[in-house]
Nucleic acid binder design. Structure first.
Lengths: 364, 364
DNA sequence: CTGAAAGCGCTAACAT
DNA sequence: ATGTTAGCGCTTTCAG
C-alpha cells in the first residue's frame, strides 16, 4: 500500500491532504454546494442537513481555504498597510489602531515596512497587490513622487493615506493638524522670550531648506510651515535658516551637538519633529552638560511614554496616533464597501501637554 | 456597446477586469502555458517568445495573482506572526527582525495581535491558517495551555515559538536566557547590599506566587526562577514572597506605590520585568518623592531607548530582540524549506548595561 | 520548445 | 431545499 495519490498543488511536506468541502460533503452525503452552503451559512439549508454537515466538518477537522474563497468571490478580507518602520512607535500605534478597526470588521492586515524608501515601498505595494488585498493603507514615503501610489489606483484598489497627504492625488487621507501644532509649540518658545530656535527633522532634503521648497513629507512640510510662520509672527528674521533637515544622515545627536556648540548661532531652544529626535537632543544636551530647560528649552511632537519621566519632563504636542490609524482603516473599509462619495481628508487635532522643558533663555 | 461581460468573482467595484495570463497569452499570440512559463521564468521558452510575452505583459499592465499561484502550488510565500501587542516595543522590534529575514527570503508577513488572550490568539491563528500561510511565528499567550499551538501543528504547518517556550511541545523555539539575566540583575542588587528586593511582572497569575507554581509565560517563569535563586544565594529567606505578579490588573504604578509605601515590607530595590514596568516604577518613585538610586534602586529588562536619558539612567539587561525575531524567522523558513531535522531551541544571551540606578540601600 | 487540458478549493448561477 | 456545472487565475502533467 503506497502513499495515497495526491494532486500537485497540495500538502505541506507532511502527508496529510487538506480536508475540503468535497470531503465534508462526501462524509455528510450531500452535494458540494449544499455542504458549502451549510458551512458558509448562506443560501438555504435544512436544519437537519446543516447539523449533519457541520458535524462532519468538525469531525474531519475542516478548515476553510480563504484563498480559494477569494478566488471565487474576488474579496480577500485583507487590508495592506505600509508604514515607514514598525519599530517607530508612531507607526506601531497607528498600525494597532488600524488593526483593531480592521479586525472588528472582519479584515486582517498584511504589514510592510517601506524604510521611507521609494523602491522598497514600491516592492511592498507590488506584493500587496499581488496578494489581492481589498485595499491599502499607506504612509507614503513621498508626498510628491506619486508613482507608487498611482499603481495602486491603477490596479483599481481603494487607497487611504495616513500621516502624510499627497495633495496632487485624489485619495482619502487622514492626517494631524501639524501646521497648527507646530505653530503652538513654537509660540510657547517665542512667548518665553526665545529668538533663536532650531527645528529638527530627519526628513531627507537636498541642500539647505529655503522658503517655497517642497518637502517629501507633507506632515513635515506642515510642521515647517507652522514653525516659520510662528517665527515670522514673532518678528524673527530669516526663519528658514532655523530649519534643519537631513538629521538622519548626520545623526540626530551629532547634529544637535553641532547646533548647541555653535556660539554664533546661539540656539536657545529646539523643536523636535518627533520623539526620536527629542531623545537625540536630550542626549546631546546631557553630553555637553547643558541643562534643560535652563540652558536649552526643548519641545517635541508625540507624547512618547518616556517624555513624562525625564528630568525635566518634556513639553509635547500629542497626536491622536491610534485614531489616525483607526480612522484611516474606517475610511478604507467604507470604500471597499463601495462608497463612491467624494474624497475626504480628515485633519485630526493635536493637543499640547505642557511639562517642564521650557523656560526663558539664559542671559548671555 | 455595453460593458464587457464579466465572470462572477472579478472586479473591485470599478469596471476594469484584472489582466490575466490568458490576456497576455492572447496578446502575444502564444498559449496560456507558454505565457505562464515566460512570465514565471520557469520551464523552457525561446528567447523570442519570452521577449514577446514580457512586452505584452508590460503593455497590458499585467500583475500576477499570487493567490491563484498559491492555489496551484500550495505555497503562499507568506509567514504569519502573532504577537502580544505590536505597540509593545519588544514585539515591534522582534517583528521587524522577522520581517527583514522574511523579505530577504521572498516571504511577507501577516500580523496579528493576541492581546495575550488565548481566545484572541486562537482566532488569529485560525485566520492565518485559513490564509494558508506557509508557517507561523508565535509568541504564545500561554506556555502551558497548548491547544492553540496544537491546531497549527495539526494543520501540518511549521511553527516556531519566540520569546516564550512551550516545554511540552516539540517545536523550534527562540528565547533569551532570562534565568541567567535575572540572576545577574538581582545579583547586582544583593551585591550592593539590598535584602528586600521586589520583582514585578504584569503576567496574570491567580493567587500569590508560590514556589513551584507554573507561570503562563516561560520567560517570566525563568526570570522569576533566576530572581529567587539569586535571593536564595544571598541567604535571603522566603524569596517567593518578593515576587509580585498581576501588575496589569492593579496597574503598575499603583502597585509600585503600594510597595514603596509599605514600611513593613521595607522594599529598597526593584527588578522590573520589562521596560514598561520600569516606567511605572519610575513614575511611582517620582510621585512619592523617592529618589533613585538613593531611596530606591531599580533595574529592568530591555534596553528601551529612554532608559539612557532619565535621571538617573537605568541599569538594564538588554535582550537581542531584533535577533530573536530574525532567528525565529530563519528557523521557520528552514522548516518550510523541508528541513526535517530535530527540533531546536535557541537560547540567546542577554547582556548587562550598567548605568546609574543602583546604589546601596539607604540606612534606616 | 509549445500547446491542450486538468486541477487547486471554493462560490454562484442555473436547474431540478 | 438540494444538485450540477462552470469558473476564478494559475501551474503542471502529458502530448506533440
Amino acid at each position: 500500500m503506497g502513499e495515497p495519490p495526491n494532486g500537485h498543488g497540495n500538502g505541506h511536506g507532511n502527508g496529510r491532504r487538506e480536508v475540503t468541502v468535497s470531503d465534508v460533503a462526501a462524509a455528510a452525503k450531500v452535494s458540494k454546494a449544499t455542504a458549502a452552503r451549510a458551512l458558509g451559512d448562506y443560501g438555504a439549508v435544512s436544519e437537519a442537513v446543516r447539523d449533519r454537515v457541520q458535524a462532519a466538518a468538525e469531525q474531519l477537522g475542516y478548515r476553510p481555504n480563504a484563498l480559494a474563497r477569494t478566488m471565487s468571490t474576488g474579496r480577500s478580507n485583507t487590508l495592506g498597510i505600509v508604514v515607514g518602520d514598525i519599530e517607530n512607535p508612531f507607526f506601531a500605534q497607528a498600525t494597532r489602531g488600524a488593526a483593531d478597526v480592521a479586525n472588528a470588521a472582519g479584515f486582517d492586515l498584511i504589514l510592510s515596512n517601506s524604510d521611507e524608501e521609494a523602491d522598497t515601498e514600491q516592492k511592498a505595494i507590488g506584493v500587496q497587490l499581488a496578494k489581492r488585498v481589498d485595499g491599502l493603507l499607506v504612509a507614503p514615503a513621498s508626498s510628491v513622487d506619486l508613482d507608487n501610489l498611482r499603481t495602486i489606483i491603477d490596479a483599481g484598489r481603494p487607497l487611504v493615506l495616513f500621516d502624510r497627504a499627497a495633495p496632487d492625488l485624489e485619495v482619502d487621507t487622514v492626517v494631524a493638524d501639524n501646521r497648527r501644532g507646530a505653530e503652538q509649540l513654537t509660540g510657547l518658545l517665542t512667548a518665553a522670550g526665545h529668538r533663536r530656535i532650531a527645528f529638527i527633522s530627519t526628513i531627507r532634503h537636498p541642500g539647505g531648506f529655503r522658503r517655497g521648497d517642497t518637502l517629501g513629507s507633507s506632515s513635515v512640510a506642515d510642521r515647517v510651515q507652522g514653525f516659520t510662520d510662528a517665527l515670522e509672527g514673532a518678528g524673527i528674521a530669516d526663519p528658514e535658516s532655523f530649519v534643519h533637515l537631513n538629521a538622519r544622515q548626520e545623526g540626530v545627536e551629532p547634529l544637535a551637538r553641532r547646533l548647541l556648540e555653535d556660539r554664533d548661532r546661539g540656539i536657545t531652544a529646539i523643536v523636535a519633529s518627533d520623539s526620536l529626535i527629542a531623545l537625540g537632543v536630550f542626549r546631546a544636551a546631557r553630553a555637553l552638560g547643558r541643562s534643560i530647560p535652563h540652558d536649552l528649552s526643548l519641545v517635541a511632537f508625540d507624547d512618547a511614554d518616556w517624555t513624562s519621566v525625564t528630568t525635566p519632563a518634556v513639553t509635547v504636542m500629542a497626536q491622536p496616533i491610534h485614531e489616525i490609524g483607526a480612522e484611516a482603516a474606517r475610511l478604507l473599509i467604507r470604500r471597499i464597501g463601495g462608497d463612491g462619495g467624494p474624497v475626504v481628508t480628515r485633519t485630526l487635532p493635536q493637543h499640547l501637554i505642557e511639562r517642564d522643558s521650557v523656560a526663558p533663555p539664559a542671559r548671555r
